[in-house]
Design a protein around this nucleic acid. Structure first.
Lengths: 127, 127
DNA sequence: TATTTGTTATATATATTATATAACATATAT
DNA sequence: ATATATGTTATATAATATATATAACAAATA
């Protein structure tokens, strides 16, 4: 499985798992309709507790990236963005951009950085 | 004072204060050499505990946005970015960009959003 | 009927966040 | 000298978040 956990990170484990799955979708390694592993199995695979996986899956459900049911388990099913998402996105980005701006990173450099990350995902769309 | 706290937010108060000050610098409301209010005064102004302000100021110091001494208190003094900062910035941005990408926001729309935020800061550089 | 799934309920432990008081060291002003 | 203002440090307390451990439950499947 693609999820690697850094126990020394200050990012909580359940958020690392959430991020890894979203980035897996972004890179095309997980596609609409794919099932995620059962919570107990993924928990054992990466050496964390079942409830930590459960928390990550429920967050992914609330964020609109998967659906969960007892037939098929956790299945990738992405809801498109809406106005609320765009507003939250802006509020998340603002402090990060402010830090970079104050540190002296110019507009062009910052936009190149963002483009670089976007290309990690969009570059190989069909594989 | 410019710091507004949202007690219902899931962002810790000391981080809201940190962000507000960095955004204050970014908008030109705080300039290199300006003093921030004493921790006890700012604490009373916005209705939080002294130690919460102290925590925010020490974080700002560690991040390279202010210096602190007993003569002048907390003074805006920005260290420029370095390689470590750029790496951390990228790691902070990646999960946010991945979410937006998976939700179907296209490259151009995302870059426009970032530009819009940058223009909140860079637009009125000398005032 | 047994197994697998997510879910729920307790319990425990640790870390983080925030507050409350108090005292301390240093610099400044009177 | 004395008082004041500054950030700092030390305790203590409380609430919340994070993570683990066990156990039981309900629904679907084999």
């Amino acid at each position: 499985m693609f999820v690697k956990i850094d126990l020394t990170s200050d990012v909580p484990i359940y958020l690392q798992i959430k991020n890894a799955i979203i980035e897996g979708i972004a890179r095309g390694e997980l596609k609409e309709g794919d099932s995620l592993p059962p919570i107990r199995q993924l928990a054992e695979d990466i050496g964390v507790n079942m409830h930590t996986i459960n928390k990550a899956y429920n967050l992914l459900k609330d964020l609109g990236f998967i659906t969960i049911n007892k037939k098929y388990g956790a299945v990738i099913s992405v809801e498109g963005f809406n106005e609320t998402f765009m507003e939250n996105l802006k509020e998340e980005l603002r402090p990060i951009i402010a830090e970079a701006f104050v540190k002296g990173i110019d507009k062009e450099t910052f936009l190149k950085l963002v483009e670089g990350i976007l290309d990690e995902f969009g570059g190989s769309k069909n594989e």
